[in-house]
């Protein structure tokens, strides 16, 4: 692990893996999530945070990230995005909504190939 890949948040060094995910999920806080996103040039808004929290809750409950169709349905029901679609999610996180949400949520890179 190179020091270059680490993150400093509130004076604390946070170790990242080669994919930019936290080595220790327990290091996560909203400040860490924000710092990870800013490092990628992304400013998180309310919709991003909704998705990040949804993914964290799903992972805590089921041990894995949600399917995209589950996120879309929940987004339509729980937010003002009644017309949410995969396009909505990709506009938020262009490199892969679930994978990027996992990164900013302090979760491991999804192993699944779904």
């Amino acid at each position: 692990m190179s020091a270059q890949s680490d993150l400093i948040v509130d004076g604390k060094r946070i170790a990242l893996d080669d994919d930019g995910h936290l080595v220790a999920s327990s290091d996560w806080s909203e400040a860490v999530g924000r710092a990870l996103a800013e490092r990628a040039g992304l400013r998180l808004d309310d919709r991003h945070w909704w998705l990040i929290r949804f993914v964290r809750d799903h992972h805590a409950r089921y041990g894995m990230p949600p399917l995209m169709r589950v996120v879309i349905r929940a987004m339509r029901e729980q937010t003002d995005q009644a017309d949410a679609s995969s396009r909505t999610l990709y506009r938020m996180f262009p490199e892969g909504p679930i994978r990027e949400a996992c990164r900013y949520a302090g979760l491991p890179r999804p192993e699944s190939c779904i």
């Binding site: 409950r61 089921y62 041990g63 894995m64 949600p66 399917l67 589950v70 349905r73």
Partner: peptide, 14 residues
Amino acid sequence: PGSEAWDQLADFEL
């Protein structure tokens, strides 16, 4: 342990 992942099928009508 681990069986909770299967709950998704029912919880989200997958």
